[in-house]
Design a protein around this nucleic acid. Structure first.
Lengths: 69, 69
DNA sequence: GAATAATGTAATATATATGTTACAATATTT
DNA sequence: AAATATTGTAACATATATATTACATTATTC
């Protein structure tokens, strides 16, 4: 689950630790989200957006992959 | 956690049941999300968006409420 | 290049999103 | 208005998001 958290975080000059603290979450959670290994909760996505001054679409939107499954 | 799932769902003429089936989730989950009683997962939000032809911002964005806590 | 900060990641624990089953309530159709 | 479809909701079970602790790796600073 790719996203643009890292880019946006660096743009506002925050470390994972700092972003995590502002949001009230663990540094590991931020790390794993940036790595695309977490499927975060909407509320957490919104909190991240608020903190890095972006919208959901800007950070978390991904085009539908039409796998034929 | 308010959102516009219901409106969008009705616009594409789907019942909760039908939307749920297309996404591969339970009708109850859709119901509770529409009622704002669930904090859905990003992946689920995206699947809903794909099915009702909207983006994350259109369906799930909510302005930051600055509660002074 | 050593010291420090920042990040990756693993194991285990906990909280919570979602499923299952079931029934009640409301809307829609005949 | 009865019949049917749609939606709300509760109790309990399961899957998974997140926390905790700890250590390893990579980047940054002196």
């Amino acid at each position: 689950m790719e996203n643009k958290v890292r880019i946006a975080r660096i743009q506002v000059n925050l470390t994972q630790q700092q972003l995590a603290e502002k949001i009230g979450v663990t540094r590991q959670t931020i790390s794993l989200i940036e790595k695309g290994k977490y499927n975060p909760t909407l509320k957490l996505c919104l909190d991240i957006c608020y903190t890095v001054n972006k919208t959901l679409d800007e950070i978390f939107w991904v085009e539908k992959e039409n796998d034929e499954k």
